[in-house]
């Protein structure tokens, strides 16, 4: 649906987006991940034709964005919730957008109702909180009932309630078969919403895969075992084709076999276990590992070098 080919954008001598190629498939939530400054916003601006690419091309339904007959009927994009004239009421803001695409006036009231802003429709948006501005921006994206929705860091700065609202909205949109392309620098956010991932760093593509592929690919997936006789277990596991490495305090990290298999091997060899758990790298770690080399500005935190973050038990799927 959205095709990005060889996209390159330079600002002066700095390359913001470097030969980026990917496609966004219809009917699912695609997370667009990267550290701050990776070029996510620039890529989105290039897709919408707000900035001009130095090389490469973008097409939406086979056409450049600016050639779409009614852009708002095909793509609803919200890059910056504060990109509104604060002196204009919420109603008039949406009305002037709807008019450009010949959308009926009645639509404005409907989307305001949907995002829960009907009561402040006649108020100037200057006084809106970030959460309300975000809702106003989202109301704008829904005016044209588009199949594709694009959000840039939609939960940034929102309170937990606002985050939940956005998250539910994205799920509802995807459940209707719409394509949702959403950027974030927080992997944790994507865990709960995205089906696919596009990961970039320093303007370059790092990964373009499904969420489950991304998790499987991460090097941290392992089984954690604690035993009084680690040497015996290492041998037993090696005999069955796995690898076990010491992790201190008699703890082993086993790779290449499932939790069940490790338990069975211990039982068969009469090795006492004090702990047996799955240790899957959380997405956040996998993400940091992947992008470690491409983080724009490293903060010097002693003992926490990027890409070498100590593992923690996974809690995937427990967030909602």
């Amino acid at each position: 649906m959205i095709e990005v080919r060889g996209l390159t954008k330079r600002y002066g001598t700095k390359v913001a987006v470097n030969d980026l190629t990917f496609g966004i498939e219809p009917g699912k939530v695609t997370g667009f991940l990267g550290p701050n400054g990776a070029g996510k916003t620039t890529t989105m601006r290039l897709i919408l034709g707000l900035d001009y690419a130095d090389a490469g091309s973008v097409s939406v339904d086979g056409k450049p964005y600016r050639e779409l007959a009614y852009p708002m009927r095909e793509v609803g994009a919200l890059l910056d919730a504060k990109a509104v004239h604060g002196g204009r009421s919420a109603y008039n803001h949406l009305l002037c957008l709807a008019q450009t695409n010949n959308l009926p006036k009645s639509r404005v009231g409907e989307v305001l109702e949907l995002v829960g802003l009907s009561e402040v429709a006649r108020k100037r948006s200057k006084g809106f909180s970030l959460g309300m501005s975000q809702r106003l921006g989202i109301a704008g994206t829904l005016l044209g009932d588009p199949q594709v929705l694009m959000f840039d860091e939609p939960v940034n700065g929102l309170d937990p309630e606002g985050i939940l609202w956005i998250r539910n909205l994205m799920k509802a949109l995807a459940a209707e078969g719409r394509t949702v392309f959403v950027s974030s620098h927080l992997m944790a956010e994507m865990e709960h919403t995205a089906d696919s991932l596009i990961v970039i760093g320093k303007g370059k593509l790092i990964a373009d895969c499904t969420m489950s592929e991304f998790i499987a690919r991460s090097s941290g997936a392992a089984v954690r075992v604690r035993t009084p006789s680690p040497d015996q277990l290492v041998l037993a596991i090696a005999a069955k084709g796995g690898t076990a490495t010491a992790d201190g305090d008699g703890t082993l990290l086993v790779r290449g076999m499932t939790l069940d298999t490790v338990g069975d091997i211990a039982f068969e060899n009469e090795i006492r276990l004090h702990e047996l758990s799955i240790m899957r790298a959380s997405l956040e770690e996998a993400f940091m590992e992947l992008t470690a080399d491409s983080v724009e500005y490293h903060a010097g935190i002693p003992g926490a070098a990027p890409g070498n973050v100590p593992g923690a038990p996974a809690n995937i799927g427990s967030g909602v």
Partner: peptide, 18 residues
């Protein structure tokens, strides 16, 4: 905070261009 029910009326079919 509940999931917004996306009950929007359908738009009239598009003719021409913006």
């Amino acid at each position: 905070t509940t999931a917004p029910g996306l009950r929007l009326s359908s738009l009239p079919p598009a003719t021409g261009r913006a």
